Simulated scan of single mutants.
Amino acid sequence: DVSGIRPADVMVVSVCPAPEDHLAGQLFSGSVGVLLDNMLSAIGLTPEQAHKTVWLKTADIAARPDEAQIQAALPQMQAELAASRARAVLLLGQAFTPQQAAVQTLSAQARCFHIPHPARLLRQPQLKRQAWEELQKLQQFLEQAV
């Protein structure tokens, strides 16, 4: 259901909810959510300017989604993107790397950017430079797209 989705500049997408998110009752909870909000803030976005979602609503984070699962959820992602009217998509995590067909389909609607998941950045801070460089590209795109 996309009726509750408000307009956003960016749609932030993780592959599936983390176990902590189920317990907290919200996506990107705890230190992962704080880091994500801080990264968005660093490029001038408030939490309200981002539509945060997951590609697979019920998937277990321990399981690696296959292409069929990703493709099956693509229409829902396209509907969320259309409802949010986001100009860009920020994909979080390695799970999207092998899913090029689905990502390219979504990219036809909005420009896609890809960074390591904030949970991984907390475990592997050496990846933050790579994430920052991609976030700066996202910021430049949003500034040019105004």
Rank of each mutant, 00 (worst) to 15 (best):
V146C: 04
D21L: 02
Q99K: 03
V13Q: 01
A95E: 14
P118D: 01
D37M: 01
T46D: 09
L135Q: 04
I70F: 13
I5T: 13
V15R: 02
A79R: 11
S107L: 03
A88F: 06
H117L: 14
S14Y: 01
L121D: 00
P98Q: 07
L92I: 08
P118G: 03
F141H: 15
L74C: 15
E133T: 04
F96P: 00
F141M: 01
N38H: 09
E143Y: 06
A83G: 09
L27N: 13
L138G: 04
V2Q: 08
S29M: 05
Q126M: 07
L23W: 02
S29R: 03
L40S: 03
A50Y: 08
Q94F: 12
C16N: 15
W55D: 11
H114D: 05
V10E: 06
S41H: 15
V13M: 08
G93Q: 09
I61T: 08
P75V: 12
P98H: 08
A42P: 04
Q76P: 00
A145K: 04
A79L: 04
V34I: 12
C16K: 00
L45S: 04
A131M: 03
W55S: 14
A50E: 03
Q69N: 11
A18D: 15
R123V: 05
F96W: 12
G33E: 06
R123Y: 04
A59M: 11
N38D: 15
A18K: 10
L23F: 08
A86T: 06
S3T: 15
P125G: 06
G44E: 10
P65K: 14
A82L: 09
L142V: 13
M11D: 04
S41R: 15
G4E: 12
V12N: 00
L23E: 10
P125N: 06
V34W: 02
Q126D: 12
A95N: 07
Q140K: 14
E20Q: 13
L121Y: 01
K52Y: 06
I115F: 01
Q94Y: 09
R111H: 06
P19R: 11
D21P: 12
Q139G: 08
H114E: 14
L27A: 11
Q144R: 13
N38G: 03
L27G: 11
A72E: 13
Q136D: 04
A119G: 14
Q126F: 07
Q99H: 12
L138N: 10
Q124Y: 05
V12P: 00
P19Y: 09
A68D: 15
V12R: 00
E48W: 03
F113Q: 06
Q130T: 10
V10H: 00
A95V: 13
I43A: 05
A86W: 00
D21K: 11
P17M: 10
A72L: 12
L23G: 00
L36H: 11
Q139I: 05
K128R: 14
D37S: 10
A101N: 11
L56C: 13
L92E: 02
Q139F: 02
A86G: 09
R111W: 04
L135R: 10
V10M: 03
L138E: 02
P125F: 03
S14W: 03
Q26M: 11
D66I: 07
S41D: 09
E20P: 01
L92S: 06
R87T: 05
S29T: 15
Q94L: 08
A102M: 13
